[in-house]
Simulated scan of single mutants.
Amino acid sequence: MTVTPTDRRPPLGDLLRTWRERRRLSQLELANRAEVSARHLSFIETGRSRPSREMIAQLAERLEVPLRERNRLLLAAGYAPAYGETDLDAPELAAARDAVRRVLAGHEPYPAVVVDRRWQLLDANPSLRLFTRLAAPDLLVPPVNVLRVSLHPEGLAPHILNLGEWRSHLLGRLTRQVELSGDVELAGLLRELRGYPCAQPEPVADLPGPGEFVVPLRIRSAGRTLSFFSTVATFGTPLDVTLAELVIESFYPADRDTVAALRAQAAEPAGD
């Protein structure tokens, strides 16, 4: 008998149980949240009952399953995927693409990047060159992973004055993402990044220093110390996998010297 990819697909019950355990919920807790009986949920997980498409969607919503994985649940139950995955350059996403680029342009002269679920660079504004010109050229060959560029010993890491603090912050974000998504490629990236050298202490928890209100990124560039904090934006009600996984991270100057440096960079001729 020839084994097809469909034959190797995990049963729906196993996938649901994995997500439930990842969210640290008992069957009774999930059943209450989804307004179904614990007995019915047990039957679904053991394969004794085939849930409707609507029931799968309801359970996935209560488990906060990413759209990509919701499609996987539907396929495992024999249903067609509900959420499309449209190329970002496709005409259908023109309005969303325009919105993203407006955000990038409006953030000038401060750096901003657009990344996908695996932290690969999709777009950026010209001010990002403040960071990229500090990294080795081979790290900037597409596909560019912004976490790798940030923490690699030939990337930004040697220029980050508070590397231990910033590294702990980034690895903490990635760890939480791996725990929430179960993404094996992200888990591999986490192992890689943890293997990069760091001579500074890495705090277990983010604790503010004097006058700090966010975890800062402090970089030494061209003999100047620049300080930033960042914000993260996502689409509020995505129904497409691509948009659901899109993240815009915007960096803001944390002091007047950094504001002046960024304005000076913006006045430089293109290509400098």
Rank of each mutant, 00 (worst) to 15 (best):
L193D: 01
A124C: 12
F213S: 04
V146E: 06
T132R: 11
F213I: 09
E245D: 14
D14C: 04
L163C: 12
F235Y: 04
R39A: 04
D123M: 03
A135M: 12
L186H: 13
A244P: 02
R173M: 15
R8G: 14
D116P: 01
T237E: 13
G209P: 07
A90W: 00
P5D: 12
A38K: 15
S181Q: 06
Q27M: 14
V247N: 02
N71M: 03
P5N: 09
E268C: 13
T258E: 06
I56M: 03
D14V: 10
R133L: 15
T6F: 06
P142D: 12
A157K: 08
A112L: 09
R194S: 12
L28A: 11
D183R: 06
G182P: 04
R117E: 04
R101Y: 12
E249F: 07
V113W: 00
R68A: 13
R191L: 14
L121A: 00
Q265L: 10
G172V: 10
S52N: 07
I56C: 05
E185M: 05
A254D: 06
L12A: 02
R33N: 11
A222E: 15
F251A: 09
A34I: 00
R102V: 08
P126R: 10
R48Y: 06
E249T: 13
V184E: 15
L15N: 01
E179P: 02
A264Y: 01
L67C: 05
D87Q: 07
L122S: 02
C198V: 02
G164I: 06
L190E: 04
S127F: 04
V259C: 11
A205S: 12
D89E: 13
R8N: 13
D255I: 00
Q177T: 09
P203L: 09
Y83W: 12
Y79L: 09
L41I: 04
A95E: 13
A261C: 08
T132C: 11
F131E: 08
L16I: 13
R224Y: 03
R22E: 05
L193N: 03
N32E: 15
T234G: 06
G106F: 07
R148W: 12
Y196V: 10
Q58P: 03
